[in-house]
Design a protein around this nucleic acid. Structure first.
Lengths: 357, 357
DNA sequence: CTGAAAGCGCTTACAG
DNA sequence: CTGAAAGCGCTTACAG
């Protein structure tokens, strides 16, 4: 209330600048072939009037909504949320807006949920983040609808879907090499869930690095977590209870690495002397543990920014029939912090009992 | 490509069910005075055709966008993101959608940014979460525009803005009482930033509890953080370096409490024997530290759900001129975990040096 | 380089 | 309880 002042429309701008609404529309959409003087007049009118185009009218008349949909299966996870910040950054810069939708990929009606989002919101494009980048039901609905989509951190190759990714295999190998170079030879691995693409990629990197030194993988040292903190607790317990426990543990994400630290501390181990721990992602938690975690930094905001850029650029070029499926590789960093060090005792896990020194 | 099948419109539904589009519209909007048999026919046609109303057309013709805007100043923070999950839950259930926008409240052009969101997106309502619930520039633009808004976790009272809140003062008092009941008498407090409403409210609760036992607040025990992990590091250092250090520290959120734990561990203190630590919020981090944190659980998803419900209900009742400004109080819980225990040594911080036992 | 007309798919008054 | 008409603010062909 108070401001009955009707918001200015394209008609007001046209009148103010003495041209047709079609010409204003041309300026709004950055179309070529607008006389320089005309353009200036229109720009001035837009500015003077404080005009903003009405999104709904644009969407209804044109064929685009200027909306990107972010579909994710991991509500409030730090990894997903950081990517979202990146998406938001680029949407803002390029005149798009972000609609978010959580998809419970373990639920019964995944297809219906995804379809509903498309039908109701009609976003121009969709960004998929792990762990639903590889969910067949989600992908099938999306493919069938023909909507442009980009997947963040999924399998690189493939000529079906566009993606933004980091080389997780190589990153995992680099991290494992770091551990090996410190002198560790028994390195525990806590994997993610089997249905998650990253799980296999990181495992392969671990195996690559071991193979370089001619070390065979010991199945006893491989545990399956679920990329969550609680899931890694029993994994860590089992690893540290082995007759010959590992001197280092590589958890495939930071939350699981934090769990390893907690278990180790509860057992009275002194870190990193008795046990080296490494994670993956460089989420905020990686800097909040004691000792802070050695990990692989995934530039999550950047992944989001690249994804939005890729998608929006694709939407801007008219011929949406072209068969190019672009991929973007983003670089990662090995971040060495205090949670990794050379192994000290031969049999650290045995040396101590449950009581802290 | 592939599906040229034009999406069904209200006209198709009208034809299919043999009524006018106006009647279909009535059904869509749940208006009263629709004959039962007519309603059934229309519902069947909607279902058979797989019809979904076009949001843009609705927005353009009607005066509502069915969009809620979530404005926040704390990108990717776990507290904010959990609230967002709650908002999303209720939006989904009630036919609304959520647009998200980060507002850099320390930036120069806050007003312009907020105004742009309103002008471009024209959401029906706005949800504001801390720390921008009390930002005067944001509030002034919003007030001036007359858009319905609800603030999550802001000052309870006031007849200007609607809010959803927990009694932080009482919660902080309960937590402090817990510490006192364990026998602690010197309790450090790490506050939030001065411009954040929660800062003062939690401090008052701390003071209330001390006063009940006739204990005067010791200014040396009060530190100012910024609700972030790094900000609390020097605060903890100072507190633990006092000639007579506290036996317990209450950090006003979990991230800062995690920082206290890290500092204490780096100094070789054994927790909770040498030092009790408590946080606030019960974010995921609270369960990922060692020892896990005693804290106050804010039901963040619930806060978000209540906020969305409050707002949507308000939007549904036509007469938007009514002067009621509803408030909703959500209850909190004291969560006692292993980070708090009775004080052990008289002077624990002195007893040890930097080396862990 | 610019414009007049039609139409996107709904809802709003207004009738009946 | 139901409907015919107008209009929301843009963009799309189509002309010139």
């Amino acid at each position: 209330m108070g401001n009955d002042a009707r918001k200015p429309t394209i008609i007001d701008v046209a009148r103010e600048s003495g041209v047709s609404i079609k010409t204003v529309s041309r300026v709004l959409n950055g179309e070529p072939y607008v006389n320089r003087a005309t353009l200036d007049k229109v720009m001035k009118a837009i500015h003077d009037l404080g005009y903003h185009p009405n999104m709904s009218a644009r969407t209804l008349a044109g064929k685009r909504s200027y909306l990107l949909g972010h579909l994710y299966g991991d509500p409030a996870g730090p990894y997903t949320m950081e990517i979202q910040v990146g998406l938001l950054n680029r949407c803002r810069a390029r005149g798009y807006h972000l609609l978010i939708e959580e998809i419970d990929y373990r639920g019964q009606d995944v297809e219906r949920r995804v379809r509903a989002v498309l039908d109701w919101l009609r976003p121009d494009g969709v960004v998929l983040t792990a762990p639903i980048t590889d969910e067949p039901r989600v992908l099938s609905v999306l493919t069938e609808s023909g909507i442009p989509l980009v997947r963040v951190t999924a399998e690189s190759g493939g000529d079906t879907f566009s993606s933004v990714w980091i080389d997780e295999r190589q990153a995992a190998a680099a991290l494992t090499r770091h551990l090996l170079s410190l002198g560790h030879r028994r390195i525990g691995l806590i994997k993610g869930p089997a249905n998650h693409g990253a799980t296999e990629r990181r495992h392969l990197g671990y195996r690559d690095a071991l193979a370089e030194l001619g070390i065979a993988e010991d199945p006893d040292l491989i545990e399956h977590g679920a990329f969550t903190f609680p899931s890694a607790l029993p994994c860590a317990e089992r690893l540290l209870s082995l007759p010959e426990p590992p001197t280092a543990i590589f958890a495939c994400n930071d939350e699981m690495a934090a769990a390893v630290i907690v278990v180790a501390q509860a057992r009275g181990l002194s870190l990193p002397d008795d046990l080296s721990v490494a994670g993956f992602d460089d989420c905020p938690i990686a800097s909040m543990t004691w000792p802070p975690l050695t990990t692989v930094r995934q530039p999550m905001r950047k992944l989001g920014e690249e994804a939005a850029d890729l998608l929006i650029s694709r939407l801007m070029e008219r011929p949406r029939g072209d068969a190019t499926v672009p991929h973007r590789l983003v670089s990662h960093d090995l971040v060495v912090r205090a949670s990794t060090a050379p192994p000290k005792a031969q049999n650290p896990a045995r040396r101590r009992t449950r009581k802290a020194g």
